[in-house]
């Protein structure tokens, strides 16, 4: 895995097999996204860097193998079509995004070196002597920090959560002090020499995606069926949780009888599935209110139905778009 700090988290842990790759990339482009997306699969990963909605860098890695550009996009489509994976999206400032592009296109001098075996003073002296243009990545499995160098002199840092280049070294020092911390040293091209290609313009991602899906239809169907089943299960578990929350609200206002009334309304409508249909929810609340009128007054009932509606709306609210 290529070590990169996280940036400002936009979406994490998205299920890759739920995504239509051209649509996903198109959304990032449409929203003028600046930052990077990381697709992680079983044995590989794909990193995509966007600047103002332009896909400037694509890098796919599998072990030591590295693919870029069209090949990397084809690899991405292939992996999403056949393999389970996750997506994390982080927003960065334009300069930092450009620096990350540089890092992904850079050349390694030292890779995965245990920090405890490194003589730091000597290393810094060496970087200075060679007038390194590039960066040093310091990382553990959980955290990462980049130190950028120009002509052998450190000029900024990229820590977890940053959107712009920072000057404080605290995070880097903390990571360096952790057991098992490692480092990479790489040289990068100056920003002005980085290619300004927008891969979304030069590559027909839709065609690449369709070809990947066609080639892996059976596997893709299976993946989607699994995803649908997982989604169904998630929905059922969410509805069960919601039903319990509604029972608790009813019991709070009407005691055990409120809980019984809620159970009756749920049973009468074949379980909590009806909560997904607003018209049936309105009917159920009206029926509940009709019965509850025998044990509580209008103000309590209004309060109860308001709370029930709010809980249903809160728990069943459509998820926010994962993208900026």
């Amino acid at each position: 895995m290529i070590p990169l700090p996280r940036g400002l988290s936009v979406a994490t842990g998205l299920v890759a097999s739920h995504q239509d790759v051209p649509h996903f990339l198109g959304q990032l482009a449409q929203r003028q996204f600046t930052g990077y997306a990381r697709f992680v699969f079983g044995a590989s990963e794909v990193l995509l860097v966007f600047t103002g909605g332009k896909l400037t860098t694509v890098l796919a890695t599998r072990g030591e193998a590295r693919l870029t550009g069209l090949e990397a996009i084809a690899e991405l489509c292939q992996r999403v079509a056949v393999e389970a994976g996750t997506i994390d999206v982080y927003q960065l400032g334009p300069e930092l995004a450009a620096r990350v592009s540089g890092v992904l296109q850079g050349e390694y001098h030292v890779r995965a070196q245990e920090l405890k075996s490194v003589e730091v003073t000597a290393l810094v002296a060496k970087i200075k002597a060679r007038k390194l243009n590039g960066c040093v990545a310091i990382y553990t499995p959980q955290r990462c920090s980049l130190v950028f160098y120009r002509d052998g002199v450190g000029f900024g840092f990229f820590h977890d959560g940053s959107q712009a280049i920072e000057t404080g070294a605290t995070d880097s020092q903390k990571i360096a002090g952790q057991p098992g911390a490692k480092m990479d040293v790489m040289s990068t091209r100056p920003l002005e020499q980085l290619p300004a290609t927008d891969f979304l313009e030069v590559v027909n991602v839709q065609k690449v995606w369709e070809a990947a899906v066609r080639a892996n239809q059976a596997r893709a169907d299976e993946l989607r069926a699994t995803a649908r089943a997982a989604e169904r299960q998630r929905q059922e578990s969410k509805l069960t949780e919601l039903a319990e929350a509604l029972h608790v609200i009813a019991a709070k206002t009407l005691g055990p009888m409120g809980r019984q009334m809620m159970t009756k309304e749920l049973a009468a409508r074949g379980g909590p599935g009806f909560l997904l249909h607003p018209d049936q929810v309105a009917e159920a609340l009206a029926a509940l209110e009709k019965g509850a009128r025998l044990v509580a007054g209008p103000s309590k009932l209004k309060e109860l139905t308001t709370q029930l509606k709010a809980e249903i709306d809160r728990q069943l609210a459509p998820p926010q778009s994962p993208l900026p």
């Binding site: 206002t253 009407l254 005691g255 009888m257 025998l294 044990v295 509580a296």
Partner: peptide, 9 residues
């Protein structure tokens, strides 16, 4: 016994 925990109890 049934309604004692309701407002009207």
């Amino acid at each position: 016994q049934q309604v004692r925990d309701t407002p009207i109890g």
